[in-house]
């Protein structure tokens, strides 16, 4: 344990990491964990969604209102929308960070994805609430 190398944190860093000198942003695990948690939540929720789609095939608006009037349907749909839009924002973020190297374009795209996710997620939730209430 008194080995000198264990006392030098820079030994764990790549040459590039040392050159940039940024250190850890201390937020790497949160993204990874949130992606897995939302994936886990989406397993049962997406099966529920597939069943709902089959039940609502060819439905008119009155049938949609009747369906969302059931509290559990509205709750499960809102839970689905939250997990789905959070999960897809996290996933698209990784895709953009992997392939878009120009910093300005990358930041612009990441912000655009967040804005679109939030707006369409809110549209979906407000619509479910309007049908349910």
């Amino acid at each position: 344990m008194t080995d000198k190398t264990t006392l030098r944190p820079e030994i764990m860093r790549s040459a590039l990491g040392r050159a940039r000198g940024y250190g850890s942003a201390k937020s790497g695990l949160h993204h990874w964990w949130a992606q897995r948690l939302t994936a886990l939540a989406l397993l049962p929720l997406s099966l529920y969604f597939v069943a709902s789609v089959l039940l609502l095939a060819g439905a008119n608006q009155a049938a949609m209102i009747a369906y969302m009037h059931q509290p559990w349907n509205a709750v499960l749909f809102i839970a689905l929308i939250l997990a789905l839009f959070y999960h897809l924002q996290l996933g698209l973020q990784v895709v953009i960070e992997d392939y878009i190297h120009a910093e300005g374009r990358r930041i612009a795209l990441l912000l655009a994805i967040r804005a679109i996710t939030v707006l369409f997620g809110l549209l979906a939730i407000v619509s479910v609430l309007k049908l349910a209430l």
Binding site: I81, L84, F85, L88, G91, L92, F120, G121, V128, L131
Partner: peptide, 26 residues
């Protein structure tokens, strides 16, 4: 995953149409 992200936008529009009017939904 990228395709399903577009699918999620479609889902939001579908729910939005249902919440707008019977005509929009049909």
């Amino acid at each position: 995953g990228i395709a399903l992200s577009a699918g999620a936008l479609l889902l939001a529009l579908w729910l939005g149409a249902a919440a707008t009017s019977p005509g929009a939904f049909s």
